[in-house]
Amino acid sequence: MNLIKLISALSCMVASGWVGYSYHADDVTFEPVLAVLAGLAWLFTEYKDGSAEQASTLHPHDVAFGLRFKTLFDERSRRFLREHSFGQIYRDTQLHAIRDASEWRGPEFEFVNGELDNICSEVVRLSDELYEKLCTYAGPVNALNGTFSVPLDNERSADWFGPETTRRIADLNSLARQIAEQLDQFEKVFRRLSPESYRQYGEGAKNG
């Protein structure tokens, strides 16, 4: 392919010289002009195709970790982060993805691709902050095993939250929405950089 590009570039140079010679000889023709334009167009197309191919090539680790990332933060988890208000009761199982991501440390949980790694690092940071605050703010709901709540029992029964509880709920909701936004961004970038593995994941999810 490099040899073809070299030949094309040399052809453009020869055609350009032909144009210059024809101009000075007062015998300008359209053939060399068309040859130059065609050669330049071909080179531009090859450059674009090569750039796109390079941009869509991910390290095998990135592909595997990207699919693992998508499996952890499935559609149910993303919907919870996008829509749930922590003024309402929630189940601890709904936060397993946040809990797991908050513990990600080391090269195993890093992307080689800088764009994906920046998104992942932000998801880990926000997940760690959200999970830590929930461990501080929330408590188990009486008589309901596996469910938790940020508002206290008396606040829920009165359907009125105090100023501190209201502030905490807003803080937690904001963190959850930020994570959801980062996950949406990850979907877009991973789909662009690894369309084949993204397509295979979608087919596997349907079959599963």
Rank of each mutant, 00 (worst) to 15 (best):
W160I: 07
Q88C: 13
D74S: 07
A15F: 06
E75R: 11
E122M: 10
L81H: 02
G87H: 12
E181R: 15
E132F: 10
T136H: 05
N142C: 06
W160R: 13
Y198L: 00
H84A: 09
V123G: 00
S157E: 14
R91L: 12
E181T: 15
D26F: 01
L81A: 05
G50R: 15
V14T: 08
H61W: 00
G20V: 11
D128A: 08
A170K: 09
E115H: 09
L144G: 05
S149L: 12
M13E: 03
P151I: 11
F186C: 10
G146Y: 01
A101L: 02
V36S: 07
L134D: 00
D49E: 15
Q185C: 14
R68D: 09
D74L: 09
G162F: 11
L3T: 15
D62P: 00
M13I: 12
A176D: 06
N145G: 07
P60E: 04
E181A: 15
T165I: 03
K188W: 11
R68N: 13
P107D: 05
F44V: 12
L183I: 08
R167I: 00
A138I: 07
G139Q: 09
N173K: 04
L72M: 11
K70V: 06
F65D: 06
T93D: 14
S157P: 02
R156G: 02
F111C: 03
R79N: 05
G87S: 15
S194M: 05
L175G: 02
R76E: 00
R168V: 04
N2V: 15
F80Q: 02
N2K: 15
L183F: 02
N154A: 11
S194Y: 01
F190A: 12
S121W: 03
Q88P: 06
C12E: 06
E110S: 07
R105W: 01
L10G: 08
R76K: 10
S77K: 05
N142V: 08
